[in-house]
Amino acid sequence: MSLERIFSNVIKLMVQYHQPLLKGVGITILLSVFVVFFGLVFGTVVAFMKMSNFSIGKFKPLNAIATAYIEVLRGTPLLLQLYFFYFLMPALIPALGDEKISITVALIINSSAYVAEIVRSGIMAVDPGQAEAARCLGLSQSQTMTKIIIPQAVKNILPAMGNELVMMVKESSLASTFYLGEIMSQQKIIGGATYLQIETLIISAILYLILTASLSKLVGIYERRLAVSD
């Protein structure tokens, strides 16, 4: 099998299967954005649980739950978690038992563990003197959080969230195990139908590269804009 042959096959497949491929790109983007958005929502909740000082005696229940949540999700393979939710969700909530929902939920939960640490470190990175100054002016704890800490933490958090999105574009490929329709699922289907596995893998790689490179570029531009207003 010559290189020219592979090259010409790649071109041919791209033309012939552009529709399912573009659909794959669309689903990959949609899935990643959706997952990272809800990952941010739940991750923020987990981050605040982990930072909470609420305690019963010496035991801090919210802190313990959040720590366990993060450790389990970051310490086990994502593929395992996808299978787990694939089987668990239909058994638990039959109405939400569709695999698209199960896998999306699994991805969101996984992402939220990583985002929780991003949010937490973004908040911790704000100079403690800022909170002291705010409290000394008579601001309450919640006013200090919303007016002083969060606006400054966002600047630390947003670039890392961009990277999380780039990661998710790649990690969402694991959803192809359950044929969710993203790029890697299309590769499996087209590769299987044409017996041209190498060529379809090359096409998928190109599509992922275009996505991640343009996202990284966007994150870079955004970071520079943040730096200017800083």
């Binding site: 100079d127 003197g129 800022q130 002291e132 100054a133 705010a134 409290r135 000394c136 002016l137 008579g138 002083i148 400054q152 800083d230």
Partner: peptide
């Protein structure tokens, strides 16, 4: 605390 102003070594103005 509203009645007690505080000035810090490192200013702690809100950036």
């Amino acid at each position: 605390r509203q009645k007690m102003g505080m000035i810090f070594q490192h200013f702690n103005v809100f950036p």
